[in-house]
Design a protein around this nucleic acid. Structure first.
Lengths: 159, 159
DNA sequence: CATGTCAACTTTATATATAAACTATCTATG
DNA sequence: CATAGATAGTTTATATATAAAGTTGACATG
């Protein structure tokens, strides 16, 4: 009987541990996201999804397909269509024909887009650095490793 | 000179450490969020914000004001108005007069709301437990502590 | 080569989100 | 008491998001 109780409460503890972990992850994420979103709007009159999309493109000068953007940003294709529309309208990116597949585009930063992203990236780095300043470097490194592990784990668990 | 270079690269490393940390936090958060959202829709035809709002209310049988919900959920007041409208329309919650302040409501779960939330909470726990199964309990505990620390830190940094 | 199936993207309807302006009420202070 | 300011909530305009259906082009297989 006491064994059963012990088992029960250990299962309960573990469940609570995982639940708390998820809630804290979400809270931290929202706090940072809100701060970055407000800063992006105040200083650049733009949004986090647009910044995120431009950040993806900056790493691929040859361009990315809509579907690749969708997978990297963990959002649906229809959503990417909307964000790309907005950024294209303001001249920061372009849809280019994909020579290998007439159904697809290769989305690229324009010259102005690269310039603009460069400015935002510098500020973005300083916001993040400031938010984490006060957390010892060693703790950041440990957190970083654990999150890398968790991310790999989640990627397997969520097809 | 070599000292200056050393300083530069250590600053760079630290910046990259914080940036990676933020990106991984965001990725983990989105992976879990997407999984939970799809499960909530598939099994209960509801959304994560509604579940979240009901979870807040479940802890306060006496009811919460709109503004308290807004602060706890880290979203704007206008957003809370919309989610409360939806949940009230389906009879899961009610806006009650606040006897102490005629401007305010006390939002409460209805009987049906409590019943419904109970069902969802059980499933939610099992989804989360399953997502984290495979991450050793010890690592979860460490992550949990680090995130609690980070959260407290961010709360101070983001007024 | 015809055709069925799949893949890339867009469109539609709807639900969150924000920022900013607005209404109603409370509260402090002279 | 009067009233100036702050607080609680809603509304409006706009930008993300999703799911599901629709288009168009690719591609394998008989």
């Amino acid at each position: 009987m006491s064994a059963a109780v012990g088992l029960d409460s250990s299962v309960t503890d573990h469940t609570h541990e995982s639940l708390r972990l998820w809630l804290r992850l979400l809270a931290c994420s929202h706090l940072i996201e809100n701060h970055v979103r407000k800063s992006l709007y105040a200083q650049f009159k733009t949004t986090l999804p647009r910044f995120d999309l431009m950040a993806q493109l900056e790493r691929f000068p040859a361009g990315l397909q809509m579907g690749e953007l969708s997978r990297r940003m963990l959002v649906t294709g229809g959503n990417v269509t909307g964000i790309v529309d907005q950024l294209e309208r303001t001249g920061l990116i372009v849809r280019t024909e994909d020579p290998a597949d007439r159904r697809a585009y290769l989305v690229k930063l324009t010259k102005e887009g690269r310039r603009r992203f460069g400015q935002m990236a510098v500020e973005h780095e300083s916001w993040i650095l400031n938010l984490f300043s006060g957390i010892p470097k060693r703790e950041q490194r440990l957190l970083n490793e654990s999150l890398a592990h968790l991310r790999a784990h989640l990627t397997r668990k969520t097809p």
